[in-house]
Design a protein around this nucleic acid. Structure first.
Length: 419
RNA sequence: GGGGAGGUGGCUGAGUGGUCGAAAGCGCCCGCCUGCUAAGCGGGUAGGGGGUGUGAAACUCCCUCGAGGGUUCGAAUCCCUCCCUUCCCGCCA
């Protein structure tokens, strides 16, 4: 969230950012509540101060009249304090609904058409036959299945079999090993269910609860991304500057309700209720967050490059970047069968927006007051779609799939998937 | 799931109704001392919020001892509920 004081001083800047992001920002309502709250709080605290004072006096005098006075003022303090607390609760709730600002260099725009293509890596592969889609290939080879999962769980679930399941696992292993051994991340294993506080910390709540699955009768949510448990790992902690930057990588399943996602462009192993992802998360000092984001994105790109997948990098415009992000890049891998790019990674920095919510701080120097860290994350990479891109890119005329070199050690040396 | 113990500042840990936002130690900061370092000596050091207000001060008030509620003029301290940690038993992959 944004500091209340910042909103007080720069309401127009906050409103402008929200508008350009296509988000609602209850700034006026918030400021009015803020005014009422502070007024009420002053009255309440003055009453409480009087009460404290009179109470001490009564301790000395034991005068019944003093007792009557202190009781009376005590009642008033209680009433006013309750009023102030109610106002503060409403204020805090609104505060959690104000979107983050965006970086000065973020392109202004409304839709994905306004995103800026920063660069492309490699070239679209060419085929001397009509390339097939991953689901077509996968179902023919018997390594990808949508019917059985639908039967046991419903639509928007996919399943993998044999070499398909193993190929996904190989991708996960390859990604984890690369990020740990070569990019300096620390591997983590984390809960796949998190409480509401954690969801608020990363800004998945209160506004976006509808995007995630909640466990019935419990305050637990299925993680929509490892970002939630990993970023919240250090909630309410004060870190040492020497610990920063903290680099974490975690592989988790992710669950998303994908409400309203049915229809066009969603056929295949693309937008599932459940998918695997290797997620990169960094906690940094404010001074280094800019360069750390670029490095994080480069780490994600390295995976695509080693797999030999053609991809492009998009600088997301204000309208397409989201509530909490300060800056966001998408990596999109080319899928020759689908004849379109699929988003396989989204790399974002939040500045201290999440850190304020999750209360993650660091001490810049011994003896100095704590400051909020900066948080950022990016997929490194999202699994279902990376698997799709691999299958479609390395398919052969006979319907088999060549296994990329870097994955072969993870496939028991298998060079070609033939079903 | 049943029973016991416990959750206090950056950390360890005292504290069972006002003298406690909290002993002591560690850590950290400032100063002194010492040929350097170490040791020693003195002082300082929780967080959040409100008001007034300046150039970043200063002053003042309120809240916070796991969370929430209650008793009381007054709660870290007493009562209730919940969460978490830990030990023993049970169960289980």
């Amino acid at each position: 969230m944004l500091p209340l004081e910042f909103i007080r001083r720069h309401p127009d800047e906050v409103k402008r950012a929200a508008e350009l992001k296509g988000e609602e920002a209850p700034v006026d309502e918030l400021l009015e509540l803020d005014r009422q709250w502070r007024q009420c709080l002053t009255v309440a605290e003055n009453a409480r101060a009087q009460q404290n004072h009179l109470s001490k006096q009564y301790a000395k005098t034991r005068d019944p009249q003093d007792l009557r006075n202190v009781k009376e003022i005590g009642e008033e303090a209680k009433r006013e304090l309750a009023k102030a607390e109610d106002l503060k609760r409403r204020l805090d709730d609104l505060l959690l609904r104000v979107p983050n600002l965006f970086a000065p260099d973020v392109p202004i725009g409304k839709t994905e058409a306004d995103n800026v293509r920063l660069r492309e890596w490699g070239e679209k592969p060419t085929f001397d036959f009509q390339p097939r889609t991953h689901y077509d290939l996968g179902e023919s080879l018997g390594i990808m299945d949508f019917e059985h999962p639908a039967h046991i769980a419903g639509s928007r679930f996919g399943g993998l079999l044999g070499a398909g399941a193993r190929l996904q696992r190989a991708l996960v292993q390859f990604m984890l090993d690369t990020h740990v051994a070569e990019h300096g991340y620390r591997e983590m294993y984390v809960p796949f269910l998190v409480n509401s506080e954690a969801m608020v910390g990363t800004a998945n709540l209160p506004k976006f609860g509808g995007d995630s699955f909640r466990v019935a009768d419990r305050d637990l949510w299925l993680v929509p991304t490892a970002e939630v448990p990993v970023t919240n790992w250090h909630r309410d902690e004060i870190l040492d500057l020497a610990q920063l930057p903290i680099l974490y990588v975690a592989h988790t399943p992710c669950w998303r309700s994908e409400a309203g996602a049915a229809g066009k462009d969603t056929r295949g192993y693309i937008r599932m209720h459940q998918f695997e992802k290797v997620e990169l998360v960094k906690l940094t000092s404010p001074e280094t967050s800019g360069e750390e984001l670029e490095a994080l994105m480069a780490n994600a790109e390295a995976i695509l490059q080693r797999l030999g997948l053609h991809y492009r990098v998009l600088f997301m415009c204000t309208g397409d970047m989201g509530f909490a992000q300060y800056k966001k890049y998408d990596l999109e891998a080319w899928c020759p069968g689908l004849e379109r790019y699929l988003e396989v990674s989204s790399c974002s920095v939040f500045q201290d927006f999440q850190a304020r919510r999750a209360n993650i701080r660091y001490r810049p120097a011994p003896g100095q007051p704590p400051r909020f860290v900066h948080t950022m994350n990016g997929s490194g990479l999202a699994l279902a779609r990376t698997l799709d891109a691999v299958m479609e890119t390395f398919q052969q005329a006979d319907g088999t799939i060549l296994v990329p070199e870097v994955l072969r050690p993870y496939m028991g040396g298998l060079k070609r998937i033939a079903g």
